[in-house]
């Protein structure tokens, strides 16, 4: 195992909600991608799932119907192996993201949002939204704050803002208290996966007018 260079991890609360299965799909996608890149959070998730196993062990029992075992064995006889595991190409996109994009960065259907910044909204349920952001090297994303919770995972390149520097695998959390201007590092274009449960609020008048149109 190579030592991980990731400095910004998932919070305990997010990992617990994911292991319990209660996180909205868009956030679950960010968690699944970060865990794919981060052995430390994968171990933490394993530990939490072991707690889930312990909770299941001590759950009270509810009787099944008389024919339940026979019905289950019949399901198995009909389909002994289930659906085969999917295969993925090696890419900077972890496999859970490839499921949404249909491949790696080349498969993304980008839409321009101005200033060289591009985005692609991913198809998730409406409880929260997920999108990919492409920020050209050296470019700033307009000053913005957040209504609800936002999680941004860096997949390629790196950006810096008022908080810190974020590179591949790092996750930045935003909420009502964070107003920031992320700037992609010079040298490499930055691709991020971001999930939010509310639209972003931009500070300047022009971005605010554009916001309903560009959808970020």
């Amino acid at each position: 195992m190579t030592p991980s260079n990731i400095n910004h991890h998932l919070t305990d609360a997010v990992l617990l909600a994911y292991s319990a299965g209660t996180l909205p799909e868009a956030f679950s996608l960010v968690v699944a991608c970060h865990v794919s890149l981060c052995p430390q959070c994968r171990s933490a998730l394993d530990g939490l799932e072991a707690m889930g196993g312990a909770v299941l062990e001590q759950t009270e029992t509810t009787a099944l119907s008389g024919g339940a075992l026979a019905a289950t064995l019949a399901k198995i006889a009909k389909d002994p192996t289930g659906s085969p595991a999917k295969s993925y190409r090696k890419s900077s996109f972890p496999s859970p993201l490839q499921d949404y994009v249909g491949g790696g960065p080349q498969s993304v259907k980008w839409r321009k949002v101005g200033g060289g910044v591009k985005q692609a909204i991913l198809a998730t349920d409406k409880t929260a939204s997920a999108r990919l952001l492409f920020i050209p090297a050296g470019t700033a994303v307009p000053d913005h704050s957040h209504n609800g919770m936002e999680m941004t995972l860096v997949l390629e390149g790196a950006f810096s803002d008022e908080v810190d520097r974020f590179a591949r695998g790092d996750v930045e959390f935003g909420d009502e208290d964070l107003t920031h201007t992320p700037i992609a590092e010079v040298g490499t274009d930055c691709i991020c996966l971001a999930a939010t449960d509310a639209p972003l609020k931009f500070k300047g008048i022009i971005p605010r007018l554009l916001q309903p149109i560009i959808g970020i």
């Binding site: 299965g21 799909e25 991608c33 794919s36 998730l45 799932e49 889930g52 972890p94 859970p96």
Partner: peptide, 21 residues
């Protein structure tokens, strides 16, 4: 437990769950 949880998400709550690599 993880199988039961995923069944809870797709069969009871009718949602999708992205899984890590």
């Amino acid at each position: 437990f993880t199988i039961a949880r995923n069944k809870n998400i797709d069969a009871i709550r009718k949602q999708k769950r992205p899984e890590p690599e």
